[in-house]
Design a protein around this nucleic acid. Structure first.
Lengths: 217, 217
DNA sequence: CAGTGTGAATATCTTCACAGCA
DNA sequence: TGCTGTGAAGATATTCACACTG
C-alpha cells in the first residue's frame, strides 16, 4: 500500500490516472522511455499542471529538468490505484452486454478476472460462455465464498439490478460496477460505480443540437 | 430548439439530466404524476437544489407548492437534450462489444437507431447482425451519405480508433462516441465522448484498497 | 536550463437559505 | 403552507506562476 501525502484524493484525479496509465502503456510499447508532463498532457487531452498535481497526491515521481520515466511512472500509478494485483470478479446478468464482457479480453488483460457468471433465467443456466458455466443467481453467495471475489459486475435489466446487488452484498463483495440503468442501495463501505453509455450518447446529441443552434455547423 | 436562459450549461448538469430522465420514466411507468425536487433527488442520489438549479438552466418547469409534473418535466428535459427526435447512428468495429451494441435494444429504445455497421476485417464483411449487413469500413463515407447519419460509434481496437474516426469525419458526422481506449483527434465542432468502463473498475479497485487501508473493512 | 512540485489565484460546481408564488 | 427558483456562500477542482533542483 503506497502512503498518500494527502488523505483525500479527488474523484476526478482517479479517473484521470486511469487515462494516464493507458497513454503510458502506449508510449512504453512505442519505446518511449521518458515523458514530460506537457507531452503526457497533450496525449491525454488535459493541462500539464493537472498531471503534476494529480501525481503529487501520491508522491514525487518526476526528475526536475528531465520529466518522468515512463515505465516507473506507470508502475507507480498502478500501485497507487491498487492495480499491482489481479482482482477476482463475478458477473450477474448474462444478456448481450454480459456476454460481451465475458468474452472481452480487455478485462483480463487489465487484471480483472471474471471467475463466475450468474443469471436467474433457467434457459441460460448451464450454458458455457468463455469457459465459464452460467450459474443460478441465488447460488451466488454460496459459490462466491468458495472463490476469493472482491468485485461484482451487474449487467441485468434495471428492474433486477437491486436483487443482483443484494446477492453480491450477501456474498460480502466490496465493490460493484453497475451497468444497469438504475440506482442501487448499498452500505457506504461498499464502493459502487455506475456505467451507462446512453448518457454519453445523450451528451453528444445535446452538443450537436447546441452547435447547430450556434450556427457552428 | 428550447431557448436557454444561460448560455453555458455545465457538463455535469447534462449527465445528471440523463439520470433524471431515467428516473422520471420509471416514475411515469409506476403511475406517479407529480414529483418534488426532494423525491426526485432521493431517487437520483443527488441534492434537491442541484436538481432545481440544473432545471433552471433550461426554463421554469415546476409549480411552487406542488412540484413537477412527471410527464411534462420528462418531455421538457428530453427536448432540451435534443431527444425529441431519433438519431441515426453508424457503428465502426464489429467485435464483441460492437455486436453487443448492435443487438442491445436499449439504443433504439432511447432514440438512437443504428443504420450501418462497418469493419475492415474481410471475415466479418457480409455477415448479418441484428438485421444489418457488415460493410467494409472504407465504404463508410460513401454509404453514410445515402443515409442521414449524425453520430458515429467507435468500437474498434485502440490502434484503429483514429482511422475509424477519420472515416466518420470524412462522412461529415457531427458527434462521436468512442468506446476504444484511445484519444482521438477531431475538429472542435465535432463532439467527442469517451466511454471506457475499465476506468470504473479502476475506481472500484482503488476505493476498495483505500477502504481496506482505512480499516473500514 | 528544462521541467518538476506547489502555494496562490482563478474558475467551476454544489449546497444553503430564503424570498416569492400557487 | 409547501415547494420552487435563485442569489449568495461554501466547497472543489483547475490553472497559473514561479521557486527550486537534477
Amino acid at each position: 500500500m503506497p502512503h498518500l501525502k494527502h488523505d483525500r484524493i479527488p474523484r476526478a484525479t482517479i479517473s484521470r490516472l486511469a487515462i494516464y496509465v493507458q497513454e503510458l502503456e502506449g508510449m512504453e510499447q512505442q519505446g518511449v522511455k521518458v515523458v514530460s508532463s506537457e507531452k503526457l498532457a497533450n496525449a491525454c487531452g488535459v493541462n500539464p499542471s493537472q498531471i503534476r498535481k494529480d501525481l503529487a497526491y501520491f508522491g514525487e515521481f518526476g526528475v526536475r529538468g528531465v520529466g518522468y520515466y515512463v515505465f516507473e511512472l506507470k508502475e507507480a500509478i498502478k500501485q497507487s490505484l491498487g492495480l499491482d494485483k489481479t482482482w477476482n470478479v463475478v458477473l450477474v446478468g448474462v444478456g448481450n452486454l454480459g456476454r460481451a464482457l465475458l468474452r472481452h479480453g480487455v478485462l483480463r488483460k487489465r487484471g480483472f478476472i471474471i471467475v463466475g457468471a450468474f443469471d436467474c433465467d433457467p434457459f441460460k443456466i448451464g450454458e458455457e460462455i468463455a469457459g465459464l458455466e452460467v450459474i443460478c443467481s441465488s447460488k451466488l453467495p454460496a459459490k462466491t465464498n468458495e472463490l476469493y471475489v472482491e468485485i461484482g459486475i451487474i449487467t441485468t435489466p434495471p428492474e433486477r439490478a437491486q436483487r443482483a446487488a443484494n446477492y453480491l452484498l450477501e456474498a460480502g463483495i466490496k465493490g460493484i460496477v453497475n451497468f444497469a440503468p438504475a440506482r442501487i442501495n448499498a452500505p457506504s463501505n461498499v464502493s459502487v460505480e455506475y456505467v451507462d453509455f446512453i448518457h454519453n450518447l445523450f451528451s453528444v446529441a445535446f452538443n450537436i443540437t447546441q452547435n447547430q443552434a450556434k450556427g457552428l455547423i
